[in-house]
């Protein structure tokens, strides 16, 4: 297993000018990013939707890489999304999964069948052309240049340590200083998009 921050730090040198949707890794990525206006940290607008949001971004911005750090709880809530992504097959879409085997934001209860689900195989079975799984940081580190150097879509499942939050939501440190509206506005300004 690896820590989420370690996995994100391994990714950072390869980011280039990619849009990053950090999902539930947002609070860790906020400490690492060098280009916050190309980040789309949204917290949790509604569980299960990060992959759909990132797919939409990738389809709307086909000339720019979109890198998503999804979670297994989100993916399990929307397994059918894998088939939609595979059918659309955006070459600029890089789908990483932070699999900590638990619902970390609610106290660390296990997701169903947590130890036995092979998410990379689910992605392949759904039609992703490439999928890999890593539980060692060194292996991920070595593979990242090729993963990100080839066209997507690709699915990369990472086993990460559960970093559980037990404090009541209202008492947790706010890591995202921007509202969701501001995050999207900053992204659109960076991309030169005229907001509708």
């Amino acid at each position: 297993m690896m820590r989420i921050a370690e996995a994100l730090a391994a990714f950072k040198p390869h980011r280039g000018d990619a849009i990053v949707v950090p999902g539930r890794g947002g609070k860790f990525w906020a400490e690492l990013t060098g280009n916050p206006n190309l980040d789309v940290p949204l917290g949790d607008p509604a569980m299960g939707g990060h992959a759909g949001f990132a797919l939409g971004l990738a389809l709307a911005q086909p000339n720019r890489k979109v890198v998503l750090f999804d979670s297994e709880g989100d993916i399990l809530m929307s397994l059918g999304m894998l088939t939609t992504i595979a059918e659309q097959a955006p070459v600029n879409f890089y789908h990483f999964l932070l699999d900590n085997e638990v619902y970390a934001t609610t106290g660390g209860q296990p997701v169903p069948n947590a130890k036995h689900v092979k998410y990379d195989r689910l992605a392949l079975a759904a039609g992703y052309p490439r999928a890999q799984a890593f539980d060692k940081l060194d292996d991920l580190d070595r593979a990242l240049p090729e993963i990100l150097g080839r066209p997507g879509p690709v699915f990369v499942a990472l086993k990460v340590y559960p970093e559980v939050e037990n404090a009541p939501i209202g008492q947790r440190r706010r890591w995202n200083t921007r509202s969701r509206t501001q995050v999207v506005a900053d992204l659109q300004q960076k991309l030169g998009i005229q907001s509708a």
């Binding site: 299960g48 939707g49 949001f53 990132a54 939409g56 971004l57 709307a60 929307s78 991309l191």
Partner: peptide, 26 residues
């Protein structure tokens, strides 16, 4: 038009949200 088929209607909301954020008109 680009058609994006979903397997459950709630998925349409997050996809449309991403499309709109990226400057498309879903």
């Amino acid at each position: 038009l680009t058609l994006v088929g979903v397997t459950r209607e709630g998925h349409a909301c997050s996809i449309a949200s991403g499309l709109a954020a990226g400057g498309a008109r879903p």
